[in-house]
Design a protein around this nucleic acid. Structure first.
Lengths: 187, 187
DNA sequence: AAACTATGAATGAATG
DNA sequence: CATTCATTCATAGTTT
C-alpha cells in the first residue's frame, strides 16, 4: 500500500469534536485497571466476552469501546515480544555494545496505587463488581470471571460438526479450510 | 527513552517506499477491485477457482499471489464477524461511533461484474449479504467466469502431514512459497 | 518547533 | 472459521 488512506485530516466521523484527536487514550483509572488485570493474573488473552466485560467496567472511567480493550491487549503482547526479540539481536561478533537501555518500559511499575478512591456503586449484572469499600494494596481484583488455571485460555475448539466447505463447486482440498465450529460460550 | 529505533529517519515519510516490505500490500487499484467484488455482490466466499481468477486479474496492478487474495477475503470475513461480536453490546451512550473499521474510505466499491455461474451466498449463520449491485459503473469488468480448469489451490502449508491428494498437474502453478519473514533484519 | 518516543490502530499472515 | 502473531502506519505527548 503506497499510502494508506488513513488520513483523518477531515474528521473520520468519530465521536470527537472536530479538531480533537479521534484516538482513544486510556484515562488513568482505565489504565490502572488494565494493567492490574494483566499483572495480577497474567491476563493476556481475553476472549471477546471478557473484552466486553472489561470494557463495560471501564466505561465508568471514560469513554471506551471494545476495540480499545482489544487493541490494548493486543499491543501489550506484541510489544513484549518485540522487546524480547530485540534482545536476541545482540551482536555475536567480537565487540559487544551494551548500548541498550534497560527493559523498563513506561510501566508505572508495580507501584501502582490501585486505590479505588472513587466509589461507584456499579453493578449492572454482578459480573463486574469491584468497588466494595475494601481494597488492598494489590491490584484490583476484578472478578470478571472465574479463572481456574488454564481457564484463561478457555478457548478450546470444540471440534463439532464437520461442516462442509463450500456449497458446491470446488472440491479442492485446501488444508486451510478447516471447518471447526467453535461456540465460545461461557458463563 | 527506550531503544525503539524503528524509524529510518531518512524516508521522511517512511511510507514503505519502494517495495522493501516483505509482506504484500494491495495497490490502490487492487484494493479497489477487491472491495468492489465484495461490495458488489456480497462476495465473501470465493472458491479457489475464483481466487485464482481474481488474482490473475489483479496482477496487472502489481505483484500479487493467490494466497494474498485468499487471505484478504479470509480476513475480511473474520473481521466482520469479530466486529459484530463486539458490537453486540451496543453502548447506550449515544455518543459512540461504532466504527471498528471504516470500510468505506474511498468511493470504491462498485463495478466489476463477476459472471461466474457458481453461487456465492452461503449464509452459514444467517449472514446477510448486501446485494447491492444496483448499478455497475465500469472500471474493470473483471470477467470472472466459472471454473475452466481443474483444481488449483495446492497446499499452502507444505509442511503439512496430511498429504491430501492433489497430485494434480494443474495448469496453474501456485507458488505458495511462504517467504521466510524470519529474516527480519534489514539494513 | 523539531526530534523522538510511546502507543493506539490497521492489516497481512499464520495457527489450530 | 476463530484467534493470534507480526509488522507497520499514525499520532498524542514529551523532551530538547
Amino acid at each position: 500500500m503506497e499510502l494508506q488512506a488513513q488520513q483523518p485530516t477531515e474528521e473520520g466521523g468519530s465521536i470527537q469534536a472536530a479538531g480533537s484527536s479521534n484516538r482513544w487514550a486510556p484515562t488513568p483509572p482505565q489504565l490502572r485497571i488494565l494493567k492490574g488485570l494483566n499483572y495480577d493474573k497474567g491476563f493476556k488473552y481475553p476472549t471477546p466476552e471478557q473484552i466486553q466485560e472489561i470494557c463495560l467496567h471501564l466505561k465508568q472511567y471514560g469513554q471506551i469501546e471494545d476495540k480499545n480493550v482489544f487493541f490494548w491487549f493486543q499491543n501489550l503482547k506484541a510489544r513484549e515480544r518485540q522487546k524480547l526479540k530485540e534482545f536476541r539481536n545482540v551482536p555475536v561478533g567480537g565487540s559487544l555494545d551494551l548500548n541498550f537501555r534497560s527493559t523498563s518500559s513506561t510501566d508505572d511499575g508495580r507501584s501502582i496505587d490501585l486505590n479505588f478512591g472513587s466509589r461507584v456503586g456499579y453493578g449492572v449484572d454482578g459480573s463486574i463488581m469491584e468497588q466494595r469499600g475494601e481494597y488492598h494494596q494489590e491490584i484490583e481484583t476484578l472478578p470478571l470471571f472465574p479463572m481456574h488455571g488454564e481457564d484463561i485460555f478457555g478457548n478450546m475448539k470444540t471440534t463439532s460438526e464437520g461442516g462442509s466447505g463450500y456449497g458446491g463447486g470446488s472440491r479442492i482440498s485446501l488444508e486451510l479450510s478447516f471447518n471447526s465450529y467453535r461456540d465460545a460460550d461461557m458463563a
